[in-house]
């Protein structure tokens, strides 16, 4: 694979933490501001795709295996389904944490207000699970496509 220039590598290393922090902010504040698990996960996966484009697939594949990403995605999906099973005493997907004094149980006043981070019941946890799943899934797609096409013609045999 052709080596990319030093400018691309430096700018990508500077930009990657900011993109990741913004994506994690979108995931964590999904119940207060626009965004959520899928949107934030797509932003973080975009930052990881930037690293793959800048540094080449071989340098990234030495650090991250796609089997680990697949495992992380399965953990996210299982976490989402098990969080949906928490409120099974009433119905599937019942938000049983909202309104309690426990974690994320605060209810904001009615109307437009900035809200509290510790509110929303099960919604922030579900956002985290879906965000993990989307980050791992989209990054796995980009990474395995980059590894499979690192030689001209795609076939390495």
């Amino acid at each position: 694979m052709d080596e990319t220039s030093k400018i691309i590598k430096t700018v990508s290393s500077v930009m990657f933490p900011f993109v990741t922090i913004y994506g994690l902010y979108v995931i964590l504040h999904g119940h207060l501001t626009p965004g959520g698990g899928f949107q934030g996960g797509a932003i973080v996966a975009s930052g990881c795709a930037l690293l793959v484009v800048a540094f080449g697939s071989d340098a990234i594949a030495k650090r991250v295996k796609e089997s680990q990403l697949s495992l992380l995605e399965s953990i996210g999906a299982l976490g989402f389904i098990s969080l949906a099973f928490v409120g099974i005493a009433t119905t599937f997907f019942y938000n049983s944490l909202a309104g309690t004094k426990f974690l994320f149980g605060r209810i904001p006043p009615y109307g437009s207000n900035p809200g509290y981070l510790s509110s929303g019941g099960l919604l922030p946890l579900m956002n985290l699970a879906v965000g993990t799943k989307v980050i791992a899934g989209l990054f796995a797609i980009v990474l395995i496509l980059a590894i499979a096409t690192r030689k001209k013609g795609g076939r390495s045999k």
């Binding site: 119940h31 207060l32 501001t33 997907f93 209810i107 009615y110 019941g121 579900m126």
Partner: peptide
């Protein structure tokens, strides 16, 4: 806002009312 505690009504629809 009262039922789920989330200020973003879109998230409360996506993950709670229409979770399926």
């Amino acid at each position: 806002q009262n039922e789920t505690g989330a200020n973003n009504a879109v998230t409360s629809v996506v993950f709670d009312y229409r979770g399926f």
